[in-house]
Structure formats: structure tokens, C-alpha cells
Amino acid sequence: MKRHILAAAAGVIFGFGLCLSHMADPQKVLAFLDPVGHWDPSLALVMGGALLVTFPGFLVLRRWQRPWADKIMHWPSATQIDRPLVIGAALFGIGWGIGGYCPGPALAALTFNPREAIIFLIALIVGGLAADRLAR
């Protein structure tokens, strides 16, 4: 139960932050990605603000043996820069540049633009399952 409450609390803060920063607005994202014309650098500050907290935060947490409500710290273990990483990141970037949505903002958009969010999220799930099939 404690795990669920902590996860949900982190989710609430994350979702509120996505909206406050306006990163949940695909027009804002595209205005950042597209420097031709009216470039809006806001998103660099969203990323910068987040790193300002995660960078020192993770430095401290690196030394923890276990979190408050689990037995181990689940740090990612993969270290190799392989083909799936490179191809996947490229495909993701192309999709991001077309629609202006990455996964978090698409979920947040359920609250103010459900039509776009639902269409995008269904396609996202289907795309993920298709990638699993092809990779196998």
C-alpha cells in the first residue's frame, strides 16, 4: 500500500509539473523543436529545471542501499549503446517532431484534449506491441 501511495504521489507532482511547465501542450513542444520562425526556448528550461533536481538527487540516492518502500534500488543495468537504442531513439524523435507529444504529455493531455490524447495513446500502445513482435 505504501508503495502505491508513494508512486501515486510522485505521479501527481509529475503530472502537475508537466502542465505548469506547459510541456503538456504539443504546440509548445513543436515551437521548441522548430527553430525556424518563432522559436520558443521554454522547454530547455523545463529539462534544465528537472535536471537541477535529479542530478544532485540521484547523486545522493546512488549511495542508498534500499528505498523507503522496497527491498532494492532498481537502477537500470544496461550500459551498451546498441542498435535498438539508436534506431528506437531516432523513431521516437521523428514521432515526437510530428505530433509534439511524448508519452507523459500525451497522458496529461487526456484532461484538456481527450480526443487527440486517446488517438495518440492507442497508436503508442499498438506501436510498442508491434516493436515487440518485430524484435522477436
Partner: peptide
Amino acid sequence: ALGGGLLIGAAAVLLMAGIG
């Protein structure tokens, strides 16, 4: 943008500290 970014970072740190 900066304020929202700080919240997003805080959420990520909370999730790692809370459930790893």
C-alpha cells in the same frame, strides 16, 4: 517552465527514494 521542470525533477527523485 523552470517551476514545472523543478516539480518533474522532484517527482523523479521521490519515486526513486520511495520505491527505487
